[in-house]
Design a protein around this nucleic acid. Sequence first.
DNA 1: GCTTATTTATACGAAGCGGTACATAAATCA
DNA 2: TGATTTATGTACCGCTTCGTATAAATAAGC
Lengths: 231, 231
Amino acid sequence: MVQKRNPPLPPRARPKAKTEPAKPQPAAGGVPPKRRGRPRAYEPDVALSRALDVFWKDGFAATSLDDLSAATGMNRPSLYGAFGDKRELYKKTYESYRNRARARMGEAFAADMPLRPMLLRIYGIALDMYLSGEDGPRGCFTVMTATSEAVFDPDIRALVVSGLGEMDRFFARLFKIAQERGELPASADPQVLANLASATIHTIAIRARAQIPRTELETLVNGAVDVMVRG
Amino acid sequence: MVQKRNPPLPPRARPKAKTEPAKPQPAAGGVPPKRRGRPRAYEPDVALSRALDVFWKDGFAATSLDDLSAATGMNRPSLYGAFGDKRELYKKTYESYRNRARARMGEAFAADMPLRPMLLRIYGIALDMYLSGEDGPRGCFTVMTATSEAVFDPDIRALVVSGLGEMDRFFARLFKIAQERGELPASADPQVLANLASATIHTIAIRARAQIPRTELETLVNGAVDVMVRG
DNA sequence: GCTTATTTATACGAAGCGGTACATAAATCA
DNA sequence: TGATTTATGTACCGCTTCGTATAAATAAGC
């Protein structure tokens, strides 16, 4: 099975896990509250990021716990203890992806440039994400999740719906601001344009996954942006 | 595992398999050339259609040979003998899907109506397909395949690329004809519009899979068509 | 040093997986 | 009728899967 085996990752540097991101403990101060037993040999954030790499590449069903174990450097019982079963881990992985994607898009948004360069920049970031991956382009993890697990698991479906909606609203805000600045005709409908912008995100994600070359995707994006900035 | 088990299909009516669609035999006449051994208890077309139902719903990795066996009414050795292993079966299934989709779109195309109603009709057909399915909407099988198996199997990837391209060319022809008829401004770029039209197909396929309701998808389509028919 | 708390490491088990060997059934051909 | 050809049905194989039971390791508290 070609798609099952990950290349044997370099033995992950195991940080000493000093910083606890969030303690359920009612302790007030942010100081490191000494834990009682054996310290963990992993950092949850790093492990989730590693798990994301595998899920993103292979999808939920084709990813085994052994794959996840190898990728994170955690053995199976530790994985289970830390994140729950495979589905739970997938959900947490997806949330970590969303946080990452949101942060990147937030940066672009904060740059506050005119509509056209802003859109081109956003699509550039998207292409960087979708075409990255050691074993070929990975596409968009939201799209991957929508086409696989979203049908069966209501929780995951809710996450995906929220992800799609967030993207739509992000673009809608962008077009609304541009319209208020006079960069778009008054007749333009920011909501419709936002849907088109999301659709363009989705289509490049799918095509990236089919290994359509970047230049072709950029041509597609340029054309789409031309239409959008015209309102 | 929720997504593994199919509801036990009603015991499929087993036709007598009289019509052989295409014989590799050099025999000329189209008359039923009598086969030698025990007659098959299935019709390949029906079996492929049944297999499509399962693959489409669950994806390649989450579909077991037992699932396929149950869906087609063929036991595992028969499946193997008829279509080869799981991957081969998937490819043949995908081709049968493409044929079906092409036929439907071809009908719409042949109707030869003005651009806007034509587009609306095409998206109506797409929505019918993507929202059908006994256990929830199924999305677009090309998109599903692109996001899963296309990464690992070059043959499947080639099929997907060809499927995406066919859709693009279909829309491009549509816009070109409309432009020649004067329904679109001369400045419009049929290729760009075709990409937007495909992107709209892709986005509604993804959203359908996330169980976004049809009315919402139709609103999205209407907005996208408004932008497209303006050129 | 001993107890307690927490994590890691090994190993196991029941179930499911894709694929196939082998015997049986049903047709044609001679 | 008997040989041949093709398809079916059962049962099995070796392997992988997810999850867990159990023991060893490493920290703090006393």
